[in-house]
């Protein structure tokens, strides 16, 4: 059981060492001893390597090897001490909880709380209109400390926040200068400085701020979800033309009869009959024909309302575009992973 627990850090270590190779020969031998589960030999060789001249990477690997070896040997305090040195060298170092033994993880977690570092400094990549948005800045402070967050670069240093913080910190930066103007185009650095007494740590993240024109809105040709209705409609076929022709002709004939002078005998209906007959024939033909499109009042009013709404909306868009042309679009992009010291 003990061996299986110890095997876990063994599996992890080669992966943790990453792609960069160890240069120091003694450290290589120590690592080989660790791989062979010869922890005493690994410890001896690691301490020997500690006294030799190591580059930064080898030094971090040496403390990591010590931490894991002490962890494997249940020497938690020594493991924590080695982890603290490792964290000072590589503040962003993380252990995979799925591949690391709980003892080693615990030692690493405790070591984190005993070292002042600012870790995981992240700046969101965002686009927004100046004055109407902000940039998210996040980091983790491992101990309660006075933390000052600044933007440096360009004309002046801008203080974003100053507070006592511990753990995860989330800030919002509106990307504006002290006078309220948007930050000019340029490369800046987000600097987070944590201080406890004489002990301090700072992390930084370069960012690129780009100013641009705000997109204007296109004018609408139609309102989404609303369509114009036909302003004419073809009424159903009707006998009305024939009926009206009959009525008008009848009135003409009756009127002729009524107005005729009795002294002049019975009126002549020949002329009225010919014209009235022609009118009724025309009415009959019209009745059979497809009716002419008639204005659809409801649809006309609806379309008028729609046109008014569209004109009003386009007027609002035009007004908004005037405002947008006076605005500045800001793009904030982190350039590369930041560092800390």
């Amino acid at each position: 059981m003990r061996h299986s627990v110890l095997l876990l850090p063994l599996l992890l270590l080669p992966a943790a060492l990453g792609a960069q190779a160890v240069q120091n020969a003694t450290l290589k031998r120590a690592q080989a001893a660790y791989d062979n589960l010869d922890y005493r030999q690994a410890l001896t060789l690691a301490h020997t390597a500690q006294r030799e001249r190591l580059n930064g990477f080898d030094k971090a690997r040496m403390f990591e090897l010590l931490a894991f070896t002490y962890g494997a040997m249940d020497s938690i305090l020594q493991s924590m001490a080695a982890f603290k040195e490792l964290i000072n060298l590589e503040p962003e170092r993380e252990l995979d909880p799925n591949r690391t033994s709980p003892k080693v993880l615990s030692a690493f977690s405790v070591a984190l709380t005993q070292v002042l570092v600012v870790r995981q400094l992240k700046v969101d990549s965002v686009d927004f209109v100046g004055g109407q948005g902000d940039v998210g800045i996040r980091y983790v402070v491992t101990q309660p400390a006075r933390v000052v967050t600044r933007i440096t670069g360009g004309a002046a240093s801008i203080k974003i926040d100053s507070s006592v913080a511990n753990g995860q910190v989330n800030l919002r930066w509106p990307a504006r200068l002290a006078n309220g103007d948007p930050v000019p185009t340029g490369t800046y650095t987000v600097v987070v400085e944590a201080t406890i007494g004489q002990n301090s740590f700072s992390a930084s993240q370069p960012i690129r701020v780009t100013q641009g024109a705000v997109d204007t809105l296109p004018h609408l040709l139609s309102l989404p979800g609303y369509e114009y209705l036909p302003e004419t409609e073809i009424p159903p076929k009707s006998w009305k033309p024939m009926g009206l022709a009959l009525v008008y002709s009848g009135i003409a004939l009756a009127g002729t009869s009524a107005l005729s002078s009795g002294d002049l005998g019975s009126a002549s209906f020949r002329e009225a009959g010919v014209i009235g007959g022609g009118l009724m024939a025309a009415g009959f033909v019209v009745m059979l024909r497809k009716p002419a499109p008639q204005p659809a009042r409801g649809n006309i009013l609806y379309n008028r309302l729609l046109r008014e709404q569209l004109a009003r909306r386009n007027a609002e868009i035009a007004q908004d575009n005037v405002r947008r042309r006076q605005q500045v679009a800001l793009r904030v992009v982190p350039i590369r992973a930041g560092g800390g010291r």
Binding site: P241, L244, A245, Y248, V285, V286
Partner: peptide, 9 residues
Amino acid sequence: LGPGVNMGL
């Protein structure tokens, strides 16, 4: 009365 057809009294 219809398209193009008119009457009057």
